[in-house]
Computed example of a mutant assay.
Amino acid sequence: MRVLMTGAGGIIGREARHRLAGRYPLMRLLDLADIEPANADEECLKVDICNLEALEAAMQGIDCVVHLAGVSVEPESNAWEQVLPANIVGTYNVFEAARRAGVKRVVFASSHHAIGYYRRSEVLTGAIAPRPDSYYGVSKVTGEALGRLYADKFGLSVVSLRIGAYRPKPADIRHLSVWISPRDMVELLRCSIEAPLLHYVVAYGMSANSRLIWDNREAGVLGYRPVDDAEDYAEEVLANGAPELEGAKPFHGGWYCAWGLGDHGLFID
């Protein structure tokens, strides 16, 4: 299995590079910024995902693409102007370059912000209709739709991962439900790369959290078995965790649901 990873210099990419070192005959690491020199069985390339031809060239001989690159949060200003090229045009380029290069599988780093405007009282499956909470969330819905199209029309095997709150430990009450640890995140990527015989799967990027608000049965197709639980940090979070924005508490997406509304108030139905 020869793997190409975009966004290899990001926080998830760096962790995955470290934990998956030596697992595959080739790990080709792409980023717009300079990244550390390659180790054995690695290649490091400086490539802009907005450059389709450069992406296609980089994907030659690759079996699986893990697409982590792009704007990773909702920017504080000019959100659409930043999200559009990096997360929408760039993601199209990744799927199209993969198709042209004969790549077999694409693992797309989506986000739970694709469904962020659902209420936390509702346990969500991977089959739930999108309900984005931000322009960032819209970009992830678009990426999931591109994945579905390229699976159905062109036969790519595609995994879309609706990643939760990725960090060393949960920081607020919402994270007790949506947290994913670095160890579980890399295991989810590994399972997504190596799972046999799948067409299109949407799974949640979450640890084995006791305060469940996502039904992650789709991840069973991948063979994913998380081992960490945010509940181990519950006492610390409840005593010292960051406060949530009051209006954002009902929703899966948290503060993203309230961001940018100004004086218009918060949408609640």
Rank of each mutant, 00 (worst) to 15 (best):
A69K: 00
G70N: 14
S72M: 08
S72C: 08
E74K: 14
S77T: 11
N78G: 13
E81C: 01
V83E: 08
L84P: 04
L84F: 08
P85R: 01
N87G: 02
I88E: 02
I88Q: 07
V89T: 12
G90E: 04
G90V: 03
G90M: 04
Y92L: 15
N93H: 07
N93Q: 04
V94T: 06
F95M: 15
R99D: 02
A101W: 01
A101C: 02
V103R: 15
R105S: 03
V106D: 09
V106C: 09
V106M: 10
A109D: 03
S110Q: 05
S110Y: 04
S111E: 01
H113M: 10
A114V: 00
A114W: 01
I115P: 08
I115V: 15
Y117P: 00
R119P: 07
R119Y: 00
R120L: 06
S121M: 12
S121C: 13
E122H: 15
E122G: 09
L124P: 12
L124R: 12
A127I: 09
I128L: 09
I128M: 13
P130A: 00
R131S: 11
R131G: 10
P132N: 01
D133N: 13
S139W: 06
V141F: 00
V141G: 00
E144S: 10
A145V: 06
A145E: 12
G147A: 00
G147I: 05
L149Y: 11
L149W: 10
L149K: 15
Y150F: 13
Y150G: 11
Y150E: 14
A151I: 09
D152A: 10
K153H: 11
L156C: 04
S157M: 06
S160N: 13
S160I: 14
S160D: 11
R162C: 03
G164N: 12
Y166R: 13
R167C: 03
R167S: 05
P168K: 07
K169L: 11
P170N: 09
P170V: 03
P170T: 02
I173D: 12
V178Q: 05
S181C: 08
S181V: 09
S181R: 12
R183K: 14
R183F: 08
D184Q: 04
V186S: 08
V186C: 11
E187V: 05
L188N: 09
C191W: 06
L198F: 08
Y200Q: 15
